[in-house]
């Protein structure tokens, strides 16, 4: 067991869990941040995506120890003071979600893409989003929503 400080969505939490616990389960079971989803546990699906210093990473493969002082943003932490980001707004407006289970991960991944590449091409989107599959196959609208949100103010400051 280790006692670690974890910076999630701008708040530092002190957590006490077994060393091998992936960040995913600390977020979900310890901190109650259930927006980060479990889909495969082996880095294949992207449902567990979070931002680590603004870069999309899969939290199911991230042992807590390796997080250190990095700033973690989960889907709950994206909209600050209740205002949806441009990406979230595009997702709502274009009605992207079907079951919605993958969409937190998709949105965070798209946010990281748009932060690095404000006007992505279709090929940029293919590459950036390839780690996040959607079992409901909402790809047509995910692509449309990323284009719709492109060029707006970057969603988060890394």
């Amino acid at each position: 067991m280790s006692n670690l400080n974890l910076n999630v969505n701008g708040t530092v939490h002190s957590v006490d869990v077994t060393d091998d616990t992936p960040l995913l389960w600390v977020l979900r079971d310890t901190l109650g941040l259930i927006g980060t989803k479990y889909g495969c546990g082996i880095g294949e699906c992207g449902a567990c995506t979070v931002l680590r210093n603004g870069v999309a990473v899969k939290s199911c493969r991230l042992p807590l120890k390796s997080v250190g002082t990095a700033k973690i943003t989960t889907i709950e932490g994206l909209a600050t003071s209740g205002k949806l980001t441009a990406v979230q707004q595009a997702w709502c407006k274009l009605d992207v979600a079907q079951c919605g289970y993958c969409q937190g991960g998709q949105i965070l991944c798209a946010t990281a893409l748009l932060t690095a590449t404000p006007k992505p091409t279709d090929q940029d989107i293919d590459e950036a989003m390839s780690g996040n599959f959607c079992r409901c196959a909402t790809y047509t609208r995910v692509r449309q929503a990323i284009h719709a949100a492109a060029g707006s103010t970057p969603a988060i400051s890394p």
Partner: peptide, 21 residues
């Protein structure tokens, strides 16, 4: 008509069976 839970989905609110606490 956009889905009634869209805003909850994009902000990661508890909705699914696996999220029950």
């Amino acid at each position: 008509v956009p889905g009634v839970d869209n805003e909850k989905i994009v902000t990661g609110q508890a909705l699914y069976g696996i999220d029950q606490r």
